[in-house]
Amino acid sequence: MNIAILSGKGGTGKTTISTNLAVMAGGNYIDCDVEEPNGFIFLNPSDLKKEEVKVDYPVINDNNCTLCGDCAKVCQFNALVRTKKNIILFDKLCHSCHACKIVCKYEAISFKKREIGIIEEGKYNNIICKRGILNIGEPMAVPVIKDVLKDLPNGINFIDCAPGTSCNVVNSLSYADGAILVTEPSAFGLHDLNMAVNLVRNFHIPFGVIINKYNPKDNRIQKYCQKENIKILGTINYSRKVAETYSSGKMIIEIEEYKKAFKEIVKNLKEVFPWN
């Protein structure tokens, strides 16, 4: 069972929730926020294995190339340019779609692979921790995300997704059997939660909401969830202690009060997401 953890807005505490929840529920932690994978700071898994993520890029064989420019014309991403002397590739714009090879009449195009990121896998106590890391300067995260998700361990996997509702999140969601939406009680939080809800509904999977930085005086999220008939899985209070624990890289379930809150969430999870 794969449960994706999303947040419309950045900085809502998605990673905090994912890591603590994984440990509390005895599930695996999968970090798909490959542009900023921060979960390992808290879990610090041991026995790390690393694997490269590679993508195809076209290589022009100058002996065969007639400089007809068809490859540059067909490329929808402006990754190829024909100058008077040669064909120039902008590898970071290339989507590895192979359209250039299909269109080339002179068999002048072949493919090589280049690294755009890595995948790391290790253990924290009994749970498996896996993450993708996109190399700095690389624009396309989706191939890394797909590589992380194509081969997941057995059991419950908590998938920490990128913030927002971009195609990175869409790709992560297509591997999920359920979703948890993390939000905070503010106008921004509600606005961006609504965007995330609209996204998840496209996937027809069960989902619930966790309110982080909970403030008992502000019930706008509860009202919204009631109206939309969305289950609230739990609330996490905001306190200076949490901020300090977080900034020192520790798990917040080390604090008794928060351990209780996460226990409660795990209980509620089992109602929303059927698993054994």
Binding site: V74, Q76, C97, H98, A99, I102
Partner: peptide, 8 residues
């Protein structure tokens, strides 16, 4: 959601 519009 998955189509990147490459035209292949």
């Amino acid at each position: 959601f998955k189509c990147e519009g490459c035209g292949a």
